[in-house]
């Protein structure tokens, strides 16, 4: 959340073989967002490491009215940063977990 004002955390992780995750996103620093958004509300969503892209999820969040179009890049970046961290952590785990 250091630069986008948004925080994304892992809500639920399947086992390593499962590429689907549950992530949770909320606004940590409202001043860093340009458009209207819902304060104090966390949005939990599924994310498939193999088929989903952060940009696509951000677009759906904007379409659903959670964020303004002007913040979609920040939402996508926050999701991408967290997903990259999760992928790195998984790469470190022994094969077969």
């Amino acid at each position: 959340a250091e630069d986008t004002g948004l925080r994304v955390e892992l809500a639920e992780e399947g086992d390593c073989s499962n590429s689907s995750l549950a992530l949770r996103l909320w606004v940590e620093d409202p001043k860093k967002l340009k458009g209207k958004h819902k304060d104090n509300e966390a949005i939990e969503f599924s994310f498939n490491l193999e088929t989903d892209t952060p940009e696509e999820v951000a677009y759906e969040m904007v379409k659903s009215g959670f964020f303004h179009e002007s913040d979609s890049k920040a939402v996508a970046k926050s999701i991408r940063d967290r997903v990259n961290l999760i992928k790195k952590a998984r790469d470190k785990k022994p094969a077969g977990c």
Partner: peptide
């Protein structure tokens, strides 16, 4: 619970719930 709202968009489900107090204090 009544505080949780489910929104569907393009086949994806978003579950909206209040941010836990503890997480708000962190920021």
């Amino acid at each position: 619970s009544s505080l949780t709202q489910v929104v569907h968009s393009a086949g994806r489900r978003f579950i909206v719930s209040p941010v836990p107090e503890s997480r708000l204090r962190e920021s």
